[in-house]
Simulated scan of single mutants.
Amino acid sequence: MGQHDSLTVSLRVNGEPHDIALDDPRVTLLDLLRERLGLTGSKKGCDRGQCGACTVLVDGRRVNSCLSLAISLDGSEITTIEGLAQGDTLHPVQAAFIAHDGFQCGFCTPGQIMSAVGLIREGHAGDDPERVREAMSGNLCRCGAYIGITEAVLDAQARMASDRQGEAA
């Protein structure tokens, strides 16, 4: 690759199409979201995939965006914390985090919420707090708000399951 060559990556981010020229094929999804698209909700914590603060959904799956090369995700659907709410209506997981005090300083909260949304979509949450804690173990909280986080995930999962049953009836 020559010095002035650039690659283009096409992504749908929070429902919006983006064609982004990359000067460096090593740019991570996290840096692209924060620096090129101005979506700063995803946080750079450890920058090594160990804290979960950068968690986003890629094609519905939970991903540490600090470990994902943007170029490898060409054609993917990306959902960040900024894409969860519908206008002024919070996503059920966001509302549950508020109701259950699932955060203190808030730095890890976007990653926690995105991980919880992915976990619930995967159908692994159930109603077992231990399973939720295990499935969320890749998201660290320095403040120790884990009890509220677990309660929020369980509450949101139950609400979303009952909403789906209501829609099916």
Rank of each mutant, 00 (worst) to 15 (best):
N139F: 08
S76Y: 02
D163I: 05
T80G: 10
L154R: 00
G106V: 04
A70L: 03
A125K: 01
L119W: 05
A152K: 03
G45Y: 08
L69T: 05
L119C: 05
C143D: 08
V9S: 05
V117N: 05
I120Y: 08
P17N: 11
L57F: 08
D163K: 10
I98A: 13
T55N: 13
G138V: 05
E130C: 00
A168E: 14
I20K: 01
T40C: 09
T89N: 14
M160R: 11
Q50K: 12
R159S: 11
D74C: 00
R48T: 14
C66T: 10
E82M: 13
D5V: 12
T89R: 15
P129N: 06
H100Q: 12
L84H: 07
D31H: 12
V9Y: 01
V117W: 04
I98E: 13
D59T: 09
G144N: 09
A152Y: 07
L67F: 10
V56D: 10
R62Y: 01
I78L: 08
I120L: 09
E134R: 03
T89C: 09
V153I: 11
G144C: 10
I120Q: 06
N139P: 06
S68Y: 07
D24E: 08
A168M: 12
R131K: 15
L73Y: 01
L84V: 10
E122S: 14
R62M: 07
I113E: 02
E77C: 00
V132C: 02
V63A: 11
N139C: 08
M136I: 01
P92Y: 10
G49C: 13
Q104S: 07
V9A: 06
D59K: 07
D88S: 15
D24M: 01
A85H: 10
T40Q: 09
Q157R: 13
G49Y: 11
G52Q: 11
E167L: 15
Q157F: 00
A21Y: 01
P129D: 04
L154N: 01
P17D: 14
Q3D: 12
R61C: 01
A125N: 02
L90A: 15
D128E: 09
P92H: 10
L39Q: 04
C108K: 05
